[in-house]
Structure formats: structure tokens, C-alpha cells
Amino acid sequence: MIDIAKEYRVALPAWIDDELADVPAVLPGVEDRMRLVHRLADRNWREGNGGPFAALVAERASGRIVSVGVNVVLATGISSAHAEVLALGLAQTAAGGWDLGGEGLPTHELVVNWRPCVQCYGAALWSGVRGLVVAGEGPELEQITTFDEGPLRTDWAEQFEARGIEVVHDVLREEALAVFRGYRKAVDEGDIVVYNARGGDA
């Protein structure tokens, strides 16, 4: 019999409870939601869990926070354990199914501190969310952090819109860049591991 692993576990870090202790259950403004995402992203890399990335899923109309996610690639050893994947998976668990746009459910949106990477692009596209809110897009993330976000199409936002997912751009963009710059400073000082695709290396 072949002896193989049969499951793996991805969970939020324990410090999330402390970070959310003073956060109300409802954040009615999109900037308030993004501020929380930036706060989680900044703490996440400082705690050593993974990259400076966070996300949340909210009910768009009410602002009720359904789930949050942070990047836990380093903490788990799982390369797909990105913030959006955690936030969406936990929201789907709470909703009781894979389709966050299903009948009888409120309209959900995903709030992220930059345009999704190629993996999270697909995860968001198929999740059932009806809105995507990003702090920014463009080359700055990769230039600052040195992460490889993958070969995403230039019309990525239009592809969301074509599928009924409204995209809101540039919400607290400078705050996102400030988190990335703080992360890069730590990388340059040798305190942080930047995980990436091998880029063709053996």
C-alpha cells in the first residue's frame, strides 16, 4: 500500500483573535474594511506567518464581516495558503457551501490589499462573490516586495466585470504601499524569507 498524506490543515494564526478584539462586527464603509485589511497584512509579516497580505469577505450592503484571511504560506508550508484563499474558504464554510452568490445569500464582496495573484484571481472568480475591492494594482507590489504574482491578464478587471463581479479600485492605495515598503525594509535587512516560484531554476 502506498503511504501518502491524506489531508492538510490551513488555519488563521492565533493572534487574529487579539487583532479583531476591538473591531465591530459591522464595518459599513469600504475604507473601514480596507483599513482592517491593511492592519492584518502589516501584522502578518511581522509575526512571520507569510507575506504582507490580508483579505476579508463582507456582506456588501450591511458591511458585516463574514471572514478574514492572511497569508500563512510560511507558517503552514503550503504554497497556496494565500489570504484570499483563506478568507473565501472560511466564508464558504460559514455560508455552508461553495457559492457565496447562491440563492438566499446576501451579496458578498472580497476586500484585498492589492490586485489578486494568478491563483487568487481564479479563486475569487469562482467563489460567488459579487464584488472585489482592491487597494491597488500595477507593478509596484512586485517591485517593492520582489514577489512573483504570476502572468495575470491585462484585462483581469474586465474579466471579473464580465462575470457580474464589480471591481472597485484604489481604496487606500498609499496605505497598502506603506505596508509593502515596511516589509521590503525587513527583507533588505535579512530578517524575512521571500518565497517565490523558482523562475526556471532547477
Rank of each mutant, 00 (worst) to 15 (best):
G101K: 06
A41M: 12
V66I: 02
L40M: 06
W15T: 10
V37L: 05
A124S: 09
E174H: 11
V129W: 00
A95P: 00
W15Q: 07
G89M: 01
M1V: 14
E31K: 07
G200S: 15
W98R: 05
G63Y: 03
G131T: 02
I4Q: 14
N196K: 15
G29R: 14
A186S: 09
V70G: 02
G138E: 10
F160P: 00
C120V: 12
G164S: 08
N44S: 07
A54Y: 12
R33I: 03
E84K: 04
Y8G: 05
L141I: 14
W156Q: 08
V112K: 06
A25G: 09
A91T: 03
P106Y: 02
V10N: 04
G122P: 04
Q119I: 15
L152F: 10
G102Q: 08
M1E: 12
G164T: 02
A55F: 06
E175I: 00
A41Q: 12
I192N: 02
N71G: 06
A157Q: 08
A162F: 11
A123F: 08
E161G: 13
E47F: 11
L177F: 11
H169Q: 12
Y183K: 06
V30N: 04
L88H: 00
E166Q: 13
I65W: 00
N71A: 08
H108E: 05
A87R: 05
K6M: 12
G101I: 14
G97P: 14
L177V: 13
E47V: 10
N49D: 10
G48F: 08
R64Q: 06
V30C: 06
G29S: 06
T146I: 04
P151F: 09
I4G: 06
A21P: 01
G102K: 08
V129S: 00
V72M: 04
A87N: 03
G63D: 00
L177Y: 13
V23E: 06
N113C: 04
I192D: 01
